[in-house]
Nucleic acid binder design. Sequence first.
DNA 1: CCTAGTGTTGCCGTT
DNA 2: CAACGGCAACACTAG
Length: 650
Amino acid sequence: MPQPRVIYWFRTDLRLHDSPALKAALDLKPEFMYPIWTWDPHYVYHARVGSNRWQFLLDCQNDLSKSITKLNPKSKLFLIREAPQTLFPKLFKEWKITHLVYEKDTDAYGRDRDNKVNEIAKEAGVEVITRYGRTLYDSDELVEKNNNKPTMSISQVQAAGAKIGGIPRPVSSPKSLPDPGPTKLSFTQQRPASSPDINAIQRDAEEKSYTSLAGPNGDFAVPSMEELGLKPATTSHRGGETIGLKMLDEIIENEDYTATFEKPKTAPTAFEPQATTLLSPHMHFGSVSCREFYWRVQDVVSKYKGKASKPPVSLTGQLLFRDMYFGAQAALGYAFGQTYNNPQCRFIPWHLPSEIDTKTGLITGKYLVDNAEAEIHFKRWKEGRTGFPWIDALMRQLKLEGWIHHLGRHAVACFLTRGGCYIDWERGAEVFEEWLIDHEAACNIGNWQWLSCTAFFAQFFRCYSPVAFPQKWDKEGEFIRRYVPELKDFDKKYIYEPWKAPIVDQKKWGCLVKGDGSEGAGGATQTYPKPMFDFATQRDICLQGMKNAYHIGLYGNDPKVLDGTWRKLFDDHAEGPTEGTNGPPGAMVKHEDENAEGNGAESDNQETPTAPKDSKKRNGKIGTKEKNEHKRQASQSTLDSMVTRKKKKA
DNA sequence: CCTAGTGTTGCCGTT
DNA sequence: CAACGGCAACACTAG
């Protein structure tokens, strides 16, 4: 038996501390260990990744590489610029690898990729070792203990977690690392197809990920933003295990904060410093281990003298929610990221629905503009010019910094979907996917479903007001003044409703409320847009639409949703959201028989629509993988090529 | 089967 | 100022 030659494949576990997989690799006592990162075209071209998140990733890689070198000057993080699926067969041979070790993933794309890599390893006679360290519990085990069903509530997570037993304590960090072996690469690079390149809009120069296998200097170095052609990041939030652990230390040092944290009581309007930990991007990239976080908090709570908060509102509760979303994702696969064919997601005929590839049953990344006004609303929402300062401030902070407070995410998500624009949550999820530095597909998708009341949460009559809600924390409107500087001199009386300020005052405060915000700067006087609709009116329309859709009670996997005949169940007379048989295709696939069988006429006579109870027998069975075997063209949380392409042309 | 209570974080008016 | 109920009404869980 030759001494092991190990590849440790880093992915979203960019750390040395508490890594069960890394420990497993070291336990092999390898002759050589290569810590590598493969440059996956999925991330480069197909997932939406804004500059701010790119920077965070590169930060994590640089920091990790330095830490590796500190433990062994001969070693580092070796970046190899090829897709893992094509690289590994060649690499295994060239470096005479005996073992491949990595931390397991449960998202749909990750599983497909890893299954392929495992096959390749098997063919090459390479042993694969995986461990789970990305969540508190192994997501697959959590699902299993939840009767093989997706975890859809926090109580299910707690019950299933209790069956599993304790959350593992962090494993110790390595004190030393083996040498890497020879790093010569004599094979040729296979460049991945770069089309479609969803991230083209993130760049202002040529994309050069795949110049050569070991990079332009042949040293496997982490590339710079410039080298990747990426626009400069605008955020001040930086990545890396060193920074992440320091942030964690500072949180833990403050025992009162750590032990009494209650998420609903933290202010979404707080900036410098923010009210929450900002560890979420570190959770995503693995630069801080969630179990390290959990146990450091739990140990403070255990010995805390006062009254400590408890899940779900406590800090550890936040991690349980993360596990809940990972459990839902693990059980549902690709369907989790969309309404279509998702047994857990309510069907609501939103505006701007996703286009479906009828062959794969997956959303394509494009969407249908069923309503011109909704398209305008969507653009104004994304660009932070809705005319509602609270919404615009949040969206501008999101774009600039890549992070907004959780409750701020609630506010903008509710506003886009059930509590304002009545636009498909998948549109919003795509924007978050692009801009968030902490974007985690499972959590993002789950939270969008939550806020849009399509899954996890159902009390749609609890609707966030863009005027009243922020005032709970920020009567003065400091947050608005920071992110919507046009309004910085407005009196607090009008800061959340500037359109109500008298013209005289608007002039006095140096900003006129007019137009739609599209003119841009340049004029002599500053302007801030008028609100794009009357909120109260729009809220009522949304509530009516939600009530109706809930009453009809379809889920994403209902045959009527799959074939498009759902339209017959919706009454068209309501202006706005329901958009039944009227007009262009409202949602999902175009169904050929639209004209064949009576269109609007019959549905006027409203035979009792499918009762909500009927939906109870919806298919809750999971693991029927056969149907979901298809590859998605893009990242799990959908694409936005239509918008981006349009933007490019313009 | 039913009922009562609860659910991470709404808003508004009344007491 | 806090606490509460109405709003019009949902899903899930424990018993």
